[in-house]
Design a binder for these strands. Structure first.
Lengths: 235, 235
DNA sequence: GCTTGAACCTCACGCCACGGGAGGTCCTAC
DNA sequence: GTAGGACCTCCCGTGGCGTGAGGTTCAAGC
């Protein structure tokens, strides 16, 4: 009566038999006794240990962390603090994903989602994470409608420039120069006119200019960038 | 020049060569061409697809979700909404863990952490999640010091009752009856005197009483519970 | 005492998204 | 022609179990 079969213990603890097998296999919660035929018999001490393991698991610790937590029970506090830090990081990560997704869902038609994503992806090759964070918070400050308007302008601008490029229009053509001016203007709006952010973006651009063709991985875009650069120079 | 080697593409995209191998293996991003000797050559279309995949992955989608998102590009919105719901659930889960951990860290000496965790674990066998939520928010309302004081009293009470039980003191003994009265009083304090919460706890207890010995998985505790029950009856 | 069905046992593969290494071939620059 | 880096395929490992397969043992009813 003071020994528990694996099935009864599973029901009592809310875990599965397989889980208890696993804990036994890895030596985390071992049944101290066996019947002559090999069936596991859990003692009250085993059961108590299982409950400790379950508690620690419910705090999100890994099995290895649980093991070390139970091996030196005086050092629970640092383990918990580390776990809390890890959870905080996770929470921030999840929140970042959530805000990205809500921004996308709020401001885009289904058709524009993929192209926007591609743009974002390419941008993340140009800019550092910090700089992107700046840009994003600026976008949040502008509000979804304004950002949506800016993005629409941007897509239109890129489409027109690509067409001129495909048509062989020289970069010095006044129409192209005007589009390049709009490109820079839009860029300024994206950075919110904030000189620091703008300078950071500019600096990132300058520093990476030489290696951009090997980093972007999207040749057509490189052509566009150079095209705009030449048009800007012709101004 | 319009074809990319796997190493160059890895550098450009920030992924590893092994990851690109993996995407190729599972048919997610396949190099459309190969050199005669078998080296992968990625075309601009492949590269664009890779960037789409990377974008969607950065939103937290699984590779399978990415695959289906790219196969029918018009249905991105429902996929994103599902992902947002999943992320919201994750965020709530992480937040719950965080609040548990901070509560533990704020209100406990290292020595009491494990026993408290065991208690929590056992309690979660007695009560439903909702009822525990009630108890927790009540605990939050009381403030950490009051809760700590209550828990300390509780541990002391349990220790004394166990000792009496081990000593063979009959449950009808006035000292045990008094301890049982304190037990009920403490229970009332845990529920904050809120009749509804108290009734819920009581109801949970009554309903599960018959099967508790098989559900708790901790025989010593069962003995204690019955001991208190008998003492309460003797009052 | 016998039967039957539930509970138990030990392998052992599968999941997900790759990491990492072994052992061999290929490409490019000097 | 040779060195060394980049590339190839194959395969095992991760965490925390789920899910069988195929065989043994237990407990209850006859």
């Amino acid at each position: 009566m003071t020994r528990w079969s694996i099935g009864d213990l599973a029901k009592a603890s809310g875990l599965t038999v397989r889980t208890l097998h696993h804990y036994d296999e890895i030596g985390l919660v071992v049944a101290s006794e066996r019947t002559p035929s090999g069936h596991r018999r859990y003692t009250p001490d085993d059961v108590r240990r299982l409950y400790q393991v379950r508690s620690l698991r419910q705090l999100g610790l890994s099995l290895e962390e649980v093991r070390s937590a139970l091996s030196r029970s005086d050092s629970l506090r640092p383990i918990f603090e580390a776990q809390l830090a890890s959870l905080t990081a996770q929470a921030q990560h999840v929140e970042a994903l959530r805000s990205r997704l809500t921004a996308l869902l709020d401001g885009h038609t289904p058709e524009s989602l993929l192209s926007t994503l591609e743009m974002m992806s390419v941008h993340e090759s140009y800019f550092t994470a910090d700089q992107l964070g700046d840009l994003r918070s600026r976008a949040a400050a502008l509000g979804p409608e304004a950002v949506e308007a800016l993005k629409a302008s941007w897509l239109e601008l890129v489409a027109r420039l690509r067409q001129h490029m495909a048509d062989g229009t020289p970069p010095s053509d006044p129409r192209v120069v005007e589009l390049a001016r709009q490109w820079d203007e839009l860029g300024a709006k994206f950075t919110g006119g904030d000189a620091a952010v703008q300078a950071a973006a500019q600096r990132s651009w300058e520093e990476n200019k030489a290696s951009i063709s090997s980093r972007i991985g999207w040749p057509a875009d490189d052509g566009l960038v150079e095209y705009v650069t030449r048009a800007r120079a012709a101004r």
